[in-house]
């Protein structure tokens, strides 16, 4: 079954470019992505631009409204995701534990709905 792993953190709280921690941090992400690819589990996975680039849209009474900013102003923001093909929740939780951001942010694991 497919699982979406949603990666949340407070922007600027992780290792920053130019610091000693940044290289190994990015390396760990690349390693995880490669591992998922090699094991045939990766469907897709991307990081997102900072939340300052977000625009939120809604349509009410036929009128489109766009608002500058994210859907919800929370401390921790969605910063990236992986979509993986996995056996079950136990495996998904193990994968989530390998995502470097889990050590200071959070990873939400959601199964993808199947309509058949």
């Amino acid at each position: 079954m497919q699982f979406m792993l949603l990666i949340y953190s407070q922007e600027g709280s992780g290792p920053q470019p130019g610091t000693d921690e940044f290289g190994p941090f990015i390396g760990a992400y690349m390693g995880f992505t490669q591992k998922m690819k090699d094991e045939g589990k990766l469907i897709s996975g991307e990081g997102l631009q900072p939340v300052a680039t977000a625009t939120t849209l809604s349509i009410r009474d036929g009128k489109t409204q766009t608002v500058d900013g994210p859907f919800a102003e929370t401390k921790e923001q969605l910063g990236g995701y992986y979509l993986l093909e996995l056996e079950d929740l136990d495996e998904a939780l193990k994968c989530a534990a390998e995502i470097p951001t889990a050590t200071y942010g959070r990873v939400e694991v959601r199964p993808v709905a199947v309509y058949d």
Binding site: F3, D88, L89, K94
Partner: peptide, 14 residues
């Protein structure tokens, strides 16, 4: 049923 919790024994490491 829907979150993918399977009816099985956990992996040895878990």
């Amino acid at each position: 049923a829907s979150a993918g919790i399977r009816f099985r024994l956990p992996d040895a490491e878990d």
